[in-house]
Amino acid sequence: MKKRCRAQIAMEYILIASLSLMILLGGAYFFRNYALESNDMVLQKRLGDVSNQILTKARKIYYYGPPSKSVLNVEMPPQIDSMFVLTTASQDEYHLGFRVLTSAGPKEFIFESDVPLEIEETIDCTTVGSPDYCSQGICGCTIERYYSAGIKNLKVEASDSCSMGSCIIIGEISPLIE
């Protein structure tokens, strides 16, 4: 009788341990998924916020005209892989774009601009793995200093000596050594 009781207790222990392990592992899995999804959502929100700041300022400065200039302090999230300005082949649509590393792999986001944009210091887009959107028009990819993680001083300057006439030139003017 005593032996049966011990066996029953051991069985109950095993059952409780496996049940709690099931709950714990399931919970951890769901939490991990949720955390990754939230991370992507936070990243998307931050990109939207950064783009909105740049594009709103660009529109304002464009209508003031040259030599109006403003410097924005924006914090770039660490997951950005490349930053580019896309002008459609017809040269009537302009976008600010980012390629970011999400939990589901690289993903591209573009934000429409009301005014023509150009990048001050560009590099050949093939060196940063040509964003997919670049096949839809002319792309100007920025150097890494523009989008690397941290606070950036982004210069938004009106100019009328751009390739398409008047435009906004986006530059990064953080001091090299602080």
Binding site: P66, P67, K69, V71, N153, D160, S161, S174, P175
Partner: peptide
């Protein structure tokens, strides 16, 4: 000449802001 087109402009410091009203 368009190549020499110049405007009055502000110092290029990262702390400077400029706006032109017309």
């Amino acid at each position: 000449g368009i190549a020499n087109k110049e405007y009055p402009r502000c110092s290029p410091s990262s702390k400077s802001e400029s706006v032109v009203l017309t």
